[in-house]
Amino acid sequence: MTGSRTSQTFLPPVMEARRWIAGKPFPKDKPLINVSQAAPIEPPPKALREKIAETALSVPEAHIYGPVLGLPELRSELAQQWCQNYGGQITLEQVGITSGCNQAFAAAISSLTNQGDEIILPTPWYFNHKMWLDMQGVSAVPLPSGAGLLPDIAMAESLISEKTRAIVLVTPNNPAGVEYPASLVMDFYLLAKKHGIALIIDETYRDFDSRSAAPHELFKQSDWPQTLIQLYSFSKAYRLTGHRVGAIVTSEGRLQDIEKFLDTVTICPNQLGQHAALWGMQNLGKWLAGERDEILSRRAAIASNMPILERAGWKLLGLGAYFAYLKHPFDLPSDQLAQELVDEAHVLALPGTMFHPEGSIDGARQLRLAFANVDGEQIKELFNRLAAYHPKS
């Protein structure tokens, strides 16, 4: 008997990495530096926590089933702010709220595909995207990145087949941090439109994009709902990871199918989390700008400390949002390297093998550092440890 589709995919990478440090002591003079997970570990700001508590006490309907597609007030607020930010036309009826951005991706794929269909994923890819496709019996078609870890439009077109249902872009990218130029994003939109497939653009980290202007002009296209599916997460912006609140922006027709999926999975998004996200959007603009400034300062610290690693043979491949993506100089594969770094350097990072197809030569030479939870001084210490590391074998 063959296993289920779920059994065919790999174990959750972040959980696997946590097992590498389980039960291991780290001395006070050289504590573990954890750059494995791209999520803030600090709680939401006090004002937002107070709003959550107030809602829990004074809004009875926050404790019962809500609308499957989310609170109308939150959907409307997102539509209005996106119209301002992107300069396009978006309505409440084109916005759905989901239980995190991962569920938004799962819902989009479920609305697009049948078993045996194909989705084009640029590599290095976000591992949860690959896992969901595996579990749906949908083939992930790797699109190798080119110079600057940017996906190549001509190569993407060569991979489109009669089974292709969508191309997925993540920008700023996870795991590489790269911000895709607006012109490249538009080229992919036009390519998807030409072939009658969807363009899924995951903008989980849009709030930490270094560009002051809108990152793309897709919503300015009058027919964007026919091609574009945008995914978003409130988790990173407002530190609401435990509340699981995400969003999907697409056509009204597709949202009707997505509503079927959501109703059979969670019935409705977390009510307290939605109220928190709404209050955050309406009241925490200045605070979020400060969060962005801090992430950009840490990005600058990565860049300024890179000479330490370059002298030891490392190379910076991508940098942005929460991520630095590196090429290491050693002969051993990155999955072995990552585990050795725990014991020898007291550093927990994710290997490139987790972001590439099995057996990938590129994946074996790469390492992801997620720096959302390390400050400038810790980044300097991290780079000193990596530069001083030499494989045991």
Results as ranks from 00 to 15, higher is better:
161 S>C: 04
220 K>E: 00
125 W>V: 04
92 L>V: 05
386 L>H: 14
178 V>K: 06
367 L>G: 03
155 M>H: 15
390 H>K: 13
54 E>N: 08
345 A>Q: 10
213 A>L: 14
53 A>C: 11
68 V>W: 00
312 A>G: 05
73 E>N: 08
118 E>T: 09
192 A>Y: 03
100 G>Q: 13
38 A>T: 09
133 L>F: 12
26 F>E: 00
328 H>A: 06
49 R>L: 14
388 A>I: 12
363 G>E: 10
306 M>R: 11
347 V>G: 01
172 P>L: 02
202 D>V: 12
116 G>T: 01
335 D>C: 05
90 I>S: 00
311 R>A: 03
328 H>K: 03
359 G>P: 12
63 H>G: 11
255 L>V: 07
4 S>P: 04
316 L>G: 09
143 L>R: 13
203 E>K: 03
240 L>W: 07
190 L>P: 04
127 F>I: 05
53 A>D: 13
286 K>Q: 13
5 R>V: 04
110 S>E: 08
173 N>C: 15
311 R>M: 02
209 D>H: 06
47 A>L: 11
379 I>V: 08
34 N>R: 00
374 V>N: 12
133 L>Y: 10
190 L>N: 03
222 S>F: 02
342 V>R: 04
133 L>Q: 09
11 L>C: 13
298 R>K: 14
148 G>T: 02
25 P>R: 06
60 P>D: 13
91 T>M: 06
289 A>S: 06
234 F>K: 02
49 R>V: 11
3 G>H: 01
358 E>W: 10
167 I>F: 02
174 N>C: 06
38 A>D: 13
269 P>R: 10
358 E>A: 11
352 G>C: 09
299 R>Q: 09
243 H>K: 01
87 G>K: 01
63 H>F: 09
329 P>N: 01
109 I>H: 14
132 W>N: 11
197 I>Y: 09
187 D>W: 04
104 A>W: 03
137 G>Y: 07
20 W>D: 14
269 P>S: 13
184 L>T: 12
93 E>G: 15
245 V>R: 11
341 L>D: 08
344 E>V: 14
389 Y>Q: 08
183 S>H: 07
70 G>T: 10
319 L>C: 09
309 L>C: 09
305 N>M: 05
263 D>E: 06
233 S>Y: 10
252 E>D: 04
291 E>R: 15
362 D>A: 09
73 E>H: 08
182 A>E: 05
390 H>T: 01
260 K>D: 07
